[in-house]
């Protein structure tokens, strides 16, 4: 079993990603199963180091998705107003 604090960490980042997914351009129904799959694929990880790496990767994806949203908005507005 993963240690409790890491377990909390994983659930936290999963939740944050789920929240982000609600606005995903291809829809929440596209985003959610894929996110779930990505987490399930690593569900068996036992090594603390490996789990930390996974969390880091999730944080990275979160940043990427936020950047994607920003760019999409910026480009739409630039097209409309500049």
């Amino acid at each position: 079993m993963a240690s409790a604090p890491l377990r909390m960490e994983v659930i936290r980042i999963y939740r944050e990603l789920l929240y982000l997914g609600r606005e995903y351009p291809l829809g929440y129904d596209y985003f959610r199963p894929r996110l779930h799959k990505a987490f399930m694929a690593k569900a068996s990880l036992q090594d603390e180091e490996q789990i930390r790496k996974g969390i880091e990767q999730a944080e990275y994806v979160k940043k990427e998705v936020e950047a994607l949203y920003y760019l999409k908005k910026y480009r739409t507005l630039r097209k409309a107003y500049a």
Binding site: E16, Y69, Y70, Y74, L77
Partner: peptide, 13 residues
């Protein structure tokens, strides 16, 4: 105007 900054995302927490 649009290029002033890059607004942060209002995250869940």
């Amino acid at each position: 105007d649009l290029r002033l900054n890059e607004p942060r995302y209002a995250s869940l927490p």
